[in-house]
Simulated assay, not measured.
Amino acid sequence: MIKKILRWLILGGTLFFLATALKNNWQGIADIRIDAAGWAIIAIATGVTLLAHTWAGWVWIWIFKNLKQPVPSSQFIYVYLKTNIAKYLPGNVGHYYGRIMAAKNANVSTGAATLSVLLEPLLMAAAALIIVLVGSLFVKTNTSLTVQIAQILGLAVVLCVLHPQFLNPLIRLLYRLKAKKSNTNTTSAVDLSMQSYPLKPLLGELGFLGLRGIGFVLTLYALSSLNLSQIPLLLGAFSFAWLLGLVVPGAPGGLGVFEATAIALLQNHFPEAVIISATGIYRLVSILSETAGATLAWLDERLFK
């Protein structure tokens, strides 16, 4: 009951914030014009975002290899792309369920299949935190030495938490939460244990977040001029907004939460109407790239099987 109330409060607060921002900046948004070069940049942003999702499929394969479960690369990239769009369904677990079933059908052990879809969002979250912490060190602010030391220590903590000694209990907790959320049985003798540090998959997820961030920066660049000095700020703000969209309950695919967070973080650095427009367009870019990825994977399987 409390969880449902929390979800409705988050949804209501997010919608209220976005509606207020739209109302206060409607004229500025209406005055924005995108020229031919801008549309070309948005098309490039869509391609980069599609590349990011395809790359994430490769990283998923690396996770299996880290778990000593080699899988067919092209088949599992197709599975990843086809199931990716299901994250917008209520519950936000449909894409995980589809990937587990596909892995089990490919004779992957139940433990490895389950662990792969639990480890992926954890590594994505860790990658987002790393980008936020590293990016903040390059943003020109009047932060004290104490804050900078705290940021470096935070980065060290994130890297240490990914050690199997700390990560395995977190994975088991996440499994119980997701199993409860999807009303599945949590009894089995599924072995949810990492045996080695997931360095390669972590680097892969950093690449995924980097590509997603580039897509967002390009979308903003299509609407407004940017300086190179603003890139760390934009990547850090994007990563933090994306992270909240990943972890906040009641937001399938981060809908609303990502946009509200990005606007709140960047409204003092860019014209608010531009930020609102950029986040809205980037959501369309994301959905279009995910839909294109799923469609192309489906077509390729049937035309070149």
Rank of each mutant, 00 (worst) to 15 (best):
I149N: 00
A37L: 14
T279H: 04
S239G: 03
R176Y: 12
T20Q: 13
L255G: 00
L162G: 01
A112L: 13
T141N: 06
M124S: 07
V190Y: 02
A241Y: 07
A126V: 04
L155Y: 05
A40D: 08
I63H: 04
L288Q: 07
I152N: 01
T184L: 15
A278K: 09
I281N: 09
D35G: 14
V147Q: 06
G28F: 13
G91F: 03
G213K: 08
T291V: 12
S239T: 04
L288C: 12
W58N: 07
H269E: 12
I41T: 13
P252T: 02
T114G: 01
T14K: 08
F64H: 14
G135M: 10
L255F: 15
L244I: 05
G91R: 06
T14V: 13
L265K: 08
G12Y: 14
L119S: 11
F270L: 12
D191Y: 02
M194T: 03
G13P: 09
V274W: 12
W62M: 08
A251C: 12
F304C: 02
A156Y: 06
V190S: 13
D300I: 06
N227D: 03
G215H: 05
L137W: 09
G250F: 15
P90V: 06
K140R: 06
K23F: 15
A112T: 04
A19Q: 11
T295L: 15
E301H: 12
L299S: 05
R212L: 14
G154M: 07
F208R: 03
G213E: 04
I231D: 04
M1R: 09
K181S: 13
G204T: 04
I275E: 11
L218I: 04
A260M: 09
E259V: 01
G38W: 10
L202F: 10
L199D: 08
V147N: 02
G91P: 07
K140T: 02
L203D: 00
N66R: 03
L284E: 02
A260W: 10
L67K: 10
A260F: 09
K68H: 15
F208Y: 14
Q165G: 02
F16A: 13
K178M: 14
H269Y: 15
L155A: 00
L162W: 10
T219W: 09
N168K: 10
I131K: 02
L299D: 02
S239M: 05
K178N: 08
L209E: 08
W8M: 09
P72Y: 05
W242N: 01
G253H: 10
L223P: 05
T143Y: 14
L6Y: 14
N227R: 09
A297Y: 15
G280H: 07
I149H: 03
Q75P: 01
G38I: 07
V117P: 08
Q151W: 11
G253A: 12
D300A: 09
V247L: 13
L220F: 12
F64W: 03
T114V: 10
I231G: 01
L255D: 00
Q195H: 15
L265R: 06
A102C: 10
S74P: 01
K65G: 04
G57E: 06
P249A: 11
